[in-house]
Design a binder for these strands. Sequence first.
DNA 1: GGGTATTTGTCCGTATGTATT
DNA 2: AAATACATACGGACAAATACC
Lengths: 270, 270
Amino acid sequence: MPDPMYRQIAEDLRQKIESGQLPHGAQLPTELELREQYEASRNTVRDAVKWLTTRGLVETRPGQGTFVVEMIDPFITEVTQEYGFGGVEAYLPGYTTDRKLTVTVPRVEIQKAGDIAVPELHLDAGAMVVSRFQQRSIDGTPWSLQTTFYPMRFVEEGAVQLIQATNIDEGAVGYLATKLGIKEAGKRDVMTVRAPDAIEAAIFRLPEDGRVNVFETRRTGYTDDGKPIRLTVTTSPADRNQFVLKVGKVPGTEGQAPAGPEGSHPGGSG
Amino acid sequence: MPDPMYRQIAEDLRQKIESGQLPHGAQLPTELELREQYEASRNTVRDAVKWLTTRGLVETRPGQGTFVVEMIDPFITEVTQEYGFGGVEAYLPGYTTDRKLTVTVPRVEIQKAGDIAVPELHLDAGAMVVSRFQQRSIDGTPWSLQTTFYPMRFVEEGAVQLIQATNIDEGAVGYLATKLGIKEAGKRDVMTVRAPDAIEAAIFRLPEDGRVNVFETRRTGYTDDGKPIRLTVTTSPADRNQFVLKVGKVPGTEGQAPAGPEGSHPGGSG
DNA sequence: GGGTATTTGTCCGTATGTATT
DNA sequence: AAATACATACGGACAAATACC
């Protein structure tokens, strides 16, 4: 039982939300009503609402009110030995199968390699890279951003299609193989979670207070002799994405229920 | 450039942090000093600091001040085809190799199956399960909580060691194989990210405002004929964990730098 | 241990702006 | 245009945690 008044109010509202008394999408009492119900000042009930907001339980809409957040039907990316996580090469929608995936045409830029690309691609500081950027949406909702970096050297050696803003049918990695004989023999995916930057928050329409994190997966592809050939960075909001990995023999895929607000671990702190 | 004053103050401080002018661990000016520097009220500079706090850039310590967060040396869990993510069966520390992993003795409880276990283990509502809970720490810092649920039926059929609060040398899954002939032929891992609950926040010593999320991986193990035999739920803080998956031939593992505050994707929102 | 200064946390009141209906 | 509801910003007061003497 938290001592401060705003926390008591928040816990009371939280209990009402998690018990179903305030279902998804329901409007909370207005700040004025909360102020009367709990006999607190408006700033104090605002602190309580902000506490719930930070936890992703409610969202405020200026001019309308405060609402319990809607449940998001998660997008499930299946991880396979062949593909690894990070990409959208394989995916399964949750519950329904009729979602539509759309991909923007690549935006191609030639840039100085950044703090990630330089070490991952074993480049010298100041080296140039080709970046190919795509945005993926599902049913019109932005779902992931993906940028792949290739050393500029590949273009100079003849892989000119890399700098064209069109989809490469065989895939850019396949194109490198047929054009330059550079084959990807292995890849490493690193998955982290972090707060979104301003661009990601805008594109994904995430609440601007940064409480919804994004997955960031960095995939580095290597040739047989261990030279890195590309770096793919994919970001996707953590509130609408799940990753699934199957190993061995697993029965048919039913939809995965999103994580609910129940305690998975026993109480206590031993 | 954000309009509200508290955002301008926050962006200014953010720029000082990201430029290195305020390095990791450095103390920010006190609220009184900020109030003088920016000619704003104390509540306004507090809003600015709170904005930075929500984004995980700074942390406040009552009686001391506000500080730029320390960089956390991430714990890297390597995902392999054999093991999948979720567990700590295989892991690599970041940068250094001299970290010590400690595991608590299992806490064993017999419970009614919860909202996750019932569907995952194909149980009837109200069925009983054995839960085995362990907490893992690295260098004394709590790193992951893990609970595995087994149908109570296994104990009734003779796997009595499941309900003993001791480590099972061959592993609980291996024990089921030798004792009952129940072999795990496959498993599915589902990875999500969510806000921590109160218990997790306490054990991991996460900031109580819930801005640091936790990974939750649910692993369900299946027999050859597709029957689920166990459900393992692992939670680990997203601020100190990374997951790595290697596919094919990948050169020697150098340490992975944590995600820095640089833009990976091009600007704009087209 | 006690006392004091410093710093953040909580709570109140008020006024004005902005977004939506 | 008017009403409603949240957002921002100011002011003040006291409490709680910490550090230092």
